[in-house]
Design a protein around this nucleic acid. Sequence first.
DNA 1: GTCTATAGGTAGATAGAC
DNA 2: GTCTATCTACCTATAGAC
Lengths: 201, 201
Amino acid sequence: MNGTTPRRRGRPPRTEAAGTRDRILTAAREEFSARGYEKTSVRGIAKAAGVDPALVHHYFGSKEQVFEAAVEVAFAPALNASDAVADGPPDGVGERLTRFVLGVWENPATRTPLLAIVRSAVNNDTAAAVFRRLIAAQLMRRIAAPLDLPDAELRAELAAAQLVGTAMLRYVIRLEPLASADLEQLVARLAPVVQHHLTAA
Amino acid sequence: MNGTTPRRRGRPPRTEAAGTRDRILTAAREEFSARGYEKTSVRGIAKAAGVDPALVHHYFGSKEQVFEAAVEVAFAPALNASDAVADGPPDGVGERLTRFVLGVWENPATRTPLLAIVRSAVNNDTAAAVFRRLIAAQLMRRIAAPLDLPDAELRAELAAAQLVGTAMLRYVIRLEPLASADLEQLVARLAPVVQHHLTAA
DNA sequence: GTCTATAGGTAGATAGAC
DNA sequence: GTCTATCTACCTATAGAC
């Protein structure tokens, strides 16, 4: 251990500044989600956080490392909730998965890092890898595996495609009337389709 | 030898240079599709086309106008083929739409401008508007309207979401095994779902 | 029609003072 | 820990020579 290394993952609490690191992280999430990776600048993050641009480099190193730290939080709900989706009667997995995905997109706290990932994943290899990990790692392993059907992975990915596409058009592209549609109406239409992908012959 | 190429859209037919304009346009499509709007530079386009950067401005004005000219070609197949999708027996519209969308994504000539639009639409309002226009204008009007069902527009958009999401994961994010899946297998799994969105109770 | 030169900005990153 | 100052690199766009 040395006293000056800023390379950290979680956040070993130090006697350091009053939440400066967290303020940068929050601002970074905001900026990345609103503008995507390329259009976001370290200077813009610093300004939004009310700190000096040099501090961003001081705490995180490079812009890419700021991004990784900023979107890391998107994994927390995914990890926690994949249990809730996988558990329960098999014929309800479509609705549970649909509600979960739309839920994290409706919640502003989790929507922000998700927007950051999507806005960045299409143009940035690092972000695309994060996206793949996010979809594949838990969703596939916990939901596709128990299906015990041929093409289980492909099935799960096509179900994910329905939900990813819906999120794209509703939350990113903001296509009407989908963008303003009632949540329950969406669940009613999407859940059977997701269920069909996962379990139908 | 063809004298003046007929490949001109919205440009006053002048006696100008050989294929310089077209070379720029082709290079622009390549660059925008590979890097997205923000990361693509006018200088990069010029270098790929083997011309001077100032010529790009000379022919198109601004970077945004280059982009619009570059993706304009994506509308041609959409306009032409929406007839083929709309015509025919109603219970086959799901498969016809699925085959059409996957078809334009499989064809390198049409995939390139589509990638440019998708890579740019998530971060750029101009590109997002192009995307909305591309989905809404023809697909919705020609396919949703004849359905004569309640929520016809929403139905059509959720069907589009399935196909957009599939394209995202397969062609942009390159998620396996979806990215390498056989085309006919995809049609077999997707067509019934698209059909369900469009016509089922 | 094509290119040189340059204006006028913004970017990521670093060194070193306090 | 925090900030000032700066380096280097690249960008869009334009004016004007050939």
